[in-house]
């Protein structure tokens, strides 16, 4: 532990965090106003803009420090622990929504259609999955544009786009690993090319996913308002899609850094962090594929 001797890099005071706080205050206020159909929704965009500004500044500073060799092995280890537990917290976030899916599908919906609950409150409702519930999307109410009475929707099959997307994400997991091998062998071309391919696959996934959403809304009557199925379907795949988007942006960032000649075969934590994240997104998708689409 010789490098420990006073060598742990302690940053100077920084203004970036407080900028981030302002960003979130703007964002949250904007969301509150927007969700309540009040003027001021633009604050959401302002908040996001400030947030991106903060990220540029903050991460830019970190990259600078890293490139100028201020981080020793211990700092590197800190980053690894940090990223690991961050990803764990993300896993728990998804766990809440998977939990909701299992609870509704396995417990709540059967309860609704059986016993006294079914007989007295929802006569004629046969529980099944997928379902929009006893009254279905027709009750979506004031906040959505679902045509009343459209109790019909089709559920998303697994073997079309979703299967293709599975293939795409699995492949992208492979390509990012090949890029990593390239980095470790100090083969920059391999790094840059395979990273680029990974990004393309990520974008392709997102494109297909968007197509699927549009299709669901316009052709299948499958919306956020489509009861238990619609809610869990869109929230799970939607948050996953958001994470793919974030992952893709992160891939683009490290790709640009790779182009600029950052990273060495020995020290490239940022690269690894992004690839961990990417694998995490991948695994979540596999769970989604099984529990949301296939079963």
């Amino acid at each position: 532990m010789s490098e420990h001797q006073g060598g742990y890099y302690l940053p100077q005071p920084s203004g970036w965090p407080i900028v981030g706080s302002v960003a979130l205050l703007l964002f949250a206020s904007g969301m509150v106003l927007w969700a309540n159909r009040l003027p001021g929704g633009w604050l959401v965009l302002a908040g996001l803009a400030v947030l991106f500004y903060m990220m540029f500044g903050w991460f830019g500073r970190v990259i600078e420090e890293s490139e100028s060799g201020k981080y020793n092995d211990q700092v590197d280890r800190s980053f690894r622990w940090g990223m690991t537990w961050f990803i764990f917290s993300e896993v728990m976030f998804f766990a809440a929504f998977f939990g909701a899916l299992f609870y509704l599908r396995v417990l709540a919906v059967p309860w609704l259609g059986s016993g006294e609950t079914g007989a007295m409150l929802w006569p004629g409702y046969t529980p099944s999955w997928p379902t929009a519930g006893p009254l279905g999307p027709s009750l979506a109410g004031v906040d959505t544009e679902v045509p009343p009475g459209s109790n019909q929707f089709s559920s998303m099959g697994a073997w079309g786009i979703p299967a293709l997307n599975t293939l795409i994400l699995l492949t992208s997991g492979l390509t990012v690993t090949i890029a990593h091998w390239g980095l470790k062998k100090n083969n920059r071309t391999q790094l840059v090319v395979w990273l680029f391919l990974t990004i393309c696959l990520g974008l392709l996934f997102l494109g297909l996913q968007s197509y699927e959403y549009v299709h669901a809304y316009t052709r299948m009557g499958l919306t956020l308002g489509a009861g238990a199925y619609g809610a869990t379907f869109f929230m799970l795949t939607g948050f996953h899609g958001l994470h793919v988007t974030i992952g893709t942006v992160m891939l683009i960032v490290i790709w640009l850094r790779a182009l600029k000649g950052h990273f060495t075969p020995e020290r490239h934590f940022a690269f690894e962090a992004v690839s961990w994240y990417w694998h995490f997104v991948d695994v979540v998708w596999l769970l989604l594929f099984v529990f949301v689409y296939a079963l």
Partner: peptide, 9 residues
């Protein structure tokens, strides 16, 4: 418009 907590949905 989701119905996580609405039995009708």
């Amino acid at each position: 418009g989701t119905h996580f907590f609405n039995p009708a949905g």
